[in-house]
Design a protein around this nucleic acid. Structure first.
Lengths: 157, 157
DNA sequence: TAGAACGTTTAAAACATTCTAAACGTTTTA
DNA sequence: TAAAACGTTTAGAATGTTTTAAACGTTCTA
């Protein structure tokens, strides 16, 4: 942090938020910095402003890019990559939920199916009933996930 | 794992699920074991079955108890504490969302208010607009959280 | 074409979390 | 009352994650 400014405080705050969501601090800081920045920023500037190594900035920028939270833009008069934030946080979050949580739920359902297969015939019927309960729970959870964008849109869209 | 059984496989699976939710493995394994167990189990039995230290079992059982995911029950003929799972996972998850996520959202809103205060007068108006946008986003998110039990109930209740 | 300007990769340092084993304090049993 | 049976605490070992610093390979510039 070269200068103490509201923008820098905000980037630090975004780092804390990221940590509390079990992302890493740098990811939050970078996104926070780009979020408030009126202009796209280069990798070097990001690293300097946030007092982190170029390497770290590079790695976490790439992750943010994968998430669609950040995009590279070309800035005339500079050959450096510059980045700007995708400020549509709801969109970013939804994609994150989809890619992270829904995919895992599908995996859980597949595993539960395997257990159900295993439990056929051999074990006592109680466990089968429990597995079926779990599976329907997972299915419902996934259905809720799927509705989430519409639900979120229904509240402040 | 003394015996290879579907129950033990399931406990291991629950451990993986826990890890993917950024809890620790032991928490998931313990809950998984208790979930499928027809009878309450003692701390020692839990540790033995899951091949973990008593200390670890003790610590994580306490966390599960705090979450309301597990409850101690007295078993006649034994002075050991025995535990059984609260199998109402939806209830457990909802309380977890409430205690974890909603509380954090409230903190985010408070911090955003502080930034808004700071931004009054001094800085350019753009950042203030962004902060207000973020705040309304957080409010909406919290509103969705609050509705979640009803939404979840609307799907398979 | 030599060297500067970049972004990426990598090895290891710094740090955080999880887990174990043993010591410990109670409570119960004999 | 001595010893056994417990659950908890604790110090540190094991492991995992994040970050840095430096080496590296390109691409551009002069």
């Amino acid at each position: 942090m070269t200068k103490p400014s509201i923008e820098n405080d905000f980037a630090r705050f975004a780092g804390q938020v990221a940590e509390s969501l079990s992302f890493n601090k740098s990811i939050g800081q970078i996104y926070g910095l780009l979020y408030t920045s009126p202009d796209p920023i280069s990798l070097d500037e990001i690293a300097t402003q946030l007092m982190m190594s170029k390497g770290n900035a590079s790695i976490n920028l790439r992750i943010l890019e994968e998430w669609g939270a950040v995009r590279p833009v070309s800035v005339s008069g500079s050959r450096r990559d510059h980045y700007e934030a995708n400020r549509n946080i709801k969109e970013v979050a939804m994609r994150r939920v989809e890619d992270g949580f829904s995919k895992r739920l599908e995996w859980v359902e597949r595993e539960l199916d395997r257990f159900l297969e295993q439990s056929k015939g051999s074990t006592d019927p109680k466990i089968r009933k429990q597995l079926e309960e779990l599976k329907s729970l997972a299915e419902n959870a996934r259905r809720v996930m799927k509705m989430l964008p519409k639900i979120a849109g229904f509240f402040g869209g």
